[in-house]
Design a protein around this nucleic acid. Sequence first.
DNA 1: AGCACGCCGACT
DNA 2: GTCGGCGTGCTC
Length: 661
Amino acid sequence: MRIAEVVFNLPLERAFHYLIPPALESTAQPGARVLAPFGSTSRIGFVVKRVSKSSFPMLKTVRRVLDSRPVIADERWALAEWLSRHYCCSFGEALAALIPGELRIRWSAAADARVEKCDGSVDGHAPTLTPHQQRAFEVIEGALQRRRTSTILLHGVTGSGKTELYLRAIASVLQRGDSAICLVPEIALTPQTIDRFQARFGACVAVWHSRLTRRQRAQVWQEAVSGARRIVIGTRSAVFSPLPRVGLIVVDEEHESTYKQGDTPRYHARDVAQARMGLTRGVVLLGSATPSVESYYEAAQGRSQLVELPERIAGRRLPSVDIVDMRDEFGARRAGLLSRRLQRALERAVQRQEQAMLLLNRRGFARVAQCRQCGTVMRCRRCAVTMVYHASQQQLVCHYCNFQTALPDICGACRKGVLRLRGIGTERVESELHRLFPVASISRMDSDTTKSRESHRQLYDAIKTEQVGLLVGTQMIAKGLDFPQVTLVGVVSADTALNLPDFRAGERTFDLLTQVAGRAGRGAQPGQVVIQTYCPAHYAIRAATRHDYAAFYAEEIQMRKRLNLPPWTHLVELTIHGTSHARVSEAAEGLAKALRRRIATRRMALLGPAPHRIPKLRRSFRMSVIVKGRTVAPMVELLRSVLQPGRRAHGLPVTVDVDPL
DNA sequence: AGCACGCCGACT
DNA sequence: GTCGGCGTGCTC
């Protein structure tokens, strides 16, 4: 038993054997990380097993053990197995995903666990529940008491009091001695939620997100393990929190795409939450005003329980929504930015000193720079996508790789024409507002103005204290913000998301419009929403104006069925990349052929190969192949065998994206 | 995934 | 003649 079987964070299924020196005998146990010589260097790996002999003739020796106790054990170990099975990654990659990258330092679970009294009992500060909330809570409480794996979808309109129900559910779990995780889409968007959690539960709440420093992360981790904290509220990786006995995972705004991890393993935190609670008979509470079609379908199929909160609390009304048909407004002649209707509404808001928000889901000043003479559009030379002009930096910026370059005086292609800026972004709207309302206080909120650690909070506070009258922003302003003085929300263009080549375009649009509309009229004054669009008849837009999720879902699910798309099927997207275009397409063809041969007998379909949505990124060409099937498991099993060893096709690396967005 | 080894094109 | 491109194979 002096040999450790070790896996690494590499796209390799195989494990490697190492001798364990006597001094490390007691600590080199399954679940502990070790530093092991690997090729010409050393790397960190995970011990998965102890064995007594190995067929490998020249074993090296473990250098050191990083953990005095396993970092991953029990149900989190099983969760890693699920991750690797479901997302087609190696076990080593799955284990690595379960611990923060920053946890490189030695840690011991022996830290003093000063568990404060923390049962989350509902005190005088908690508001009384409305009848709808009360009924919803009974369902949630019932599920928690049953102690069986279950999922509840809480579909509540914006401002219907979902957070209060999360708090009550968590309190209930704490009272019986278990712990809970609450996932939020983006920490910066939810300062209010965190404040409320801390007000209710005090020091037993830990906050987990990407902007924590290394030290803070290690500390939160430690406190979660030791039981000093019983609640973790955080972004997607918080689903892996090492809290003991997690009885409930709340996924707030479950439809948000930020729950999907961008690199291997490309997990979806909502699905991981369900897998985790499946292992410990816990409850998953999904909350949304605009549920993902997937989650609503699960409820419709009876696999999860649907609970509705159809009304706003405190008798607040949902805002009235007006559609401006931009074809009437500007017609085939010059395109404009703000319709007369929206301008008038803005004027009224400014006069009454109320706040207004304008949404445009595109940052920068102009979407493209195009030559007036030859029509050439400025593209990023590494990514082959159009570059966006940013007035604040006076530069063209690639939104994929952040490559920047000055706006040339004349076109580089024909050396004659002057470049013309076309297509609008948030910067352009901001300058238009300055022109129309020179005395108003105007701010812009997008990822450009909120880059630094503190800028988001500062801007948020300025709006909260009403130093800002008019706010322009990307989807960042559409989500979660609660500013009672906002009475007007304008959507500059509802069509930006609608016209993308994506089968979720309708869903995205419905979500964005409903969410941004929910920012209006949260205080005493009623809210008004003005939506500008060139497709007023589209069902996603029409349903959003009526706040009618059911109508949207009914249309959407039929379209998905007709085209055999999710949630009726699952997709797995394979992307092959490499610097040689010829080699990439050769490999993609080869992979498609190999797969096609094998899926003939199974109930799967193959699409492609075709150029990836972004055909070239950072000098690398990309081709995609999509596998479609009724369930994920057989597809991943097949891919695992075809892409071995090293998850490659014809020598080129392949990324596997299960249920891509 | 990195890294070393090995085989063909444009330079001092 | 060699420097360096990336295609190939290996890592206990």
